[in-house]
């Protein structure tokens, strides 16, 4: 047994050593670029004119690489579905409720009632302003999901509507794809944001469809994270 262990740790060390050598070779001679590369320079020069968004990262995620984002949201949806499937097949004998955390106290319940609306509002603020300030659908969705998490912590026995979360999720997905197709029909291509006017640069109602798409992404991501949290929290001996 001991010899087996040493052989294994020898292989692990050799692998990590080789990897470390490769990393060393990459890092040792690294000098940061002084100029933007061509892709980045294109985005820097044309984002304001083509999409009307202040935040270039948002413009890349929603417009230039919108199809990738659609795929990513789909991957996330599949993850949520698989987690629910894997966990729902393992029904345990009933008894107890929630995830085994202690029943919440007065402080947590009251604090939750006070904080959850503010957290939800902040999440909505983050994804509505995604084209102007740092933030956007993914961050806002995560903040929404942490509001749901707080609710789950405060009332472990409470059941949330899977139906409601599923409906929000699928509705925002359908509208997202419909906006993309509208981009083909009315503007330059799939998910082109110029189906709406670009508005004045820097105001909240600008950048065409970017705020709209980011709101949908935020709702969809928030619903998916909430459903992952919920299925890990409750499925089995609910």
């Amino acid at each position: 047994m001991t010899s087996k262990l040493t052989v294994r740790s020898f292989f692990v060390m050799a692998l990590l050593g080789l990897l470390g050598l490769a990393f060393w070779a990459l890092a040792a001679n690294y000098t940061p670029d002084a100029e933007l590369n061509r892709t980045a320079a294109y985005y820097a020069a044309n984002t304001a004119e083509e999409t009307g968004a202040q935040n270039i990262v948002s413009a890349i995620i929603v417009t230039y690489r919108g199809l990738d984002t659609l795929g990513e949201v789909t991957v996330l949806f599949l993850t949520a579905a698989i987690v629910a499937l894997v966990l729902s097949q393992s029904k345990a004998p009933r008894g107890g409720s929630g995830s085994g955390f202690l029943p919440s106290g007065e402080l947590l319940t009251t604090g939750t009632q006070m904080l959850v609306p503010i957290i939800m509002l902040f999440g909505a603020y983050v994804f509505v302003n995604g084209h102007l300030t740092p933030g956007g659908g993914f961050q806002g969705g995560a903040i929404l999901a942490s509001g749901i998490l707080l609710l789950l912590l405060a009332e472990p026995s409470r059941r949330f509507g899977h139906a409601l979360i599923g409906r929000i999720e699928s509705l925002s997905g359908v509208v997202y794809v419909a906006l993309g197709i509208a981009g083909i029909v009315f503007a330059g291509g799939f998910l082109d944001n110029r189906i709406l006017g670009l508005g004045s640069f820097g105001s909240i109602l600008s950048a065409g469809a970017i705020p709209l798409i980011y709101i949908l992404i935020g709702l969809k991501v928030g619903a998916e994270f909430s459903s992952i949290l919920e299925s890990l929290e409750e499925t089995e001996d609910a």
Partner: peptide, 29 residues
């Protein structure tokens, strides 16, 4: 800043809670 927000909300917030939910279930079982 975009990445920092995402990492703070998702990497350190939600991931930790996912781990604790699974830990709690395993411990109770």
């Amino acid at each position: 800043p975009d990445v920092a927000m995402t990492e703070a909300a998702i990497g350190s917030g939600l991931t930790t809670f996912l781990f604790f939910y699974v830990l709690g279930r395993i411990r109770r079982e």
